[in-house]
Amino acid sequence: MITVTLTTDWGADGLYTGAFKGKLVSRVPGVQLVDITHQVDVLNPLKAVFALQHAYQYFMKKTIHIVGVGGKISQGSDLEVPEYICFQYNHHYFIGPNNGIWEALFGEVPKEVFALERSPLSKKFYAFPELEIFIDAVGKLAMGMEPKHLGEMVPCKLGRRIGLPVKKQNQLLGEFLYFDVYGNGITNISKDEFYQVCNNRPFSIMVGMQRQQYITDVIAEDYNEGDSSKIIALFSFTGYLEIAVPQKQLTQFVHIDKNTKILVQFYDSLEEKERDEGTLL
């Protein structure tokens, strides 16, 4: 059985997704379709990166992963006609735009990527070229062809990796990467990095403004620890620090925008921590 995953910004109303799925199951009968998400922010490929990065590895080898997200995260992908590519990485197949997304996804640039050829029929779907180009590629992969048979080898556009937190001796300054359907915010502070800097010292985690309800000094084990009057922090299955509010949505509890930071402050003693907390509003 051929398994195909979809990570797109096509929305959940069914217009684009429905047309794509209908055409794909007609081309490849029996294909197993799995939706990673269709609600990536429009033209925000980094959101697609995070969603797929922590999902694809759980699928069986030779799964075909389709990314249908516009926008770019590279300086060299401003093309009049978008270029679409197919390649194999870590025993999985990937199909999507050549826009810098892949370096962010894997932490390195795939070595052998192949441009997908545009058939004359693709002009019919100029406003939605994925409907022809991606499905044609999936059909050929399902027949046993390899990416090298689908087009000429091209350079994979350089992008940028997911930003690392700013690290100092006694601080980590991070940012939000992703908000799930529950409103919980996943940051770019990894568990390994947190405990490496922590080194068994007391700490406090603050989101945005310096107020008590936006601060915690413990790592929770589940989402229901504490009460709904202040934030909690825990490490999600992704391995990154996650900020939540029990029985509430973080995004409704704290004003958050693209500039909101997460400050983790480490202290050499409890006395130092208590002195610092005494200055809070």
Rank of each mutant, 00 (worst) to 15 (best):
K191T: 02
L234N: 01
N199D: 15
S228I: 03
L234M: 09
F203M: 04
E225R: 09
N199C: 13
D217Y: 10
A233V: 06
R211G: 06
E221K: 08
V218C: 06
Q210I: 12
N199Q: 14
V197A: 05
M206G: 06
C198L: 11
R211Y: 13
Q196I: 03
I189D: 07
Q196T: 10
K230Q: 12
Q212C: 13
N199R: 12
I205F: 08
S204G: 09
I231N: 00
K230V: 01
N224A: 07
Y223H: 07
Y214S: 14
Y195D: 02
R201L: 05
E225W: 11
V218S: 11
E193L: 15
E221L: 07
G208Y: 00
D192T: 11
V218F: 14
E221P: 00
A220W: 06
G208E: 02
S204L: 11
R201I: 04
N200W: 07
I189Q: 04
G226L: 05
R211Q: 14
M209G: 04
I219M: 08
R201Y: 01
I232V: 14
F194C: 04
I231L: 09
V207E: 00
Y223R: 10
L234Y: 06
R201N: 07
A233K: 01
R201S: 00
S228L: 01
V197M: 08
Q210A: 14
E193F: 05
N199E: 14
T216Y: 10
N200H: 13
K230G: 10
N200P: 00
C198M: 13
I219G: 06
S204M: 12
D227R: 11
D192R: 08
N224Q: 09
K230T: 06
A233H: 04
A233C: 11
G226R: 02
Y223G: 03
S228A: 12
A233N: 07
I205N: 05
E225S: 07
Q196D: 09
M206N: 13
R211K: 14
V218E: 14
C198T: 02
S229T: 14
N199H: 14
R201V: 03
D222W: 02
I215N: 05
Q213L: 08
N224R: 06
E193D: 15
T216K: 13
V207H: 01
Q210Y: 13
S204W: 08
Q213N: 15
Y195V: 03
A220H: 12
F194I: 03
C198K: 13
G226H: 08
E221G: 13
I231T: 07
Y214L: 12
K191F: 01
S228P: 00
S228G: 08
Y195C: 03
F194T: 04
V207S: 03
M206E: 05
E221I: 02
Q212H: 14
I232T: 02
T216G: 06
F194Q: 04
E225L: 11
M209Y: 11
I232Q: 03
D217L: 10
A220M: 10
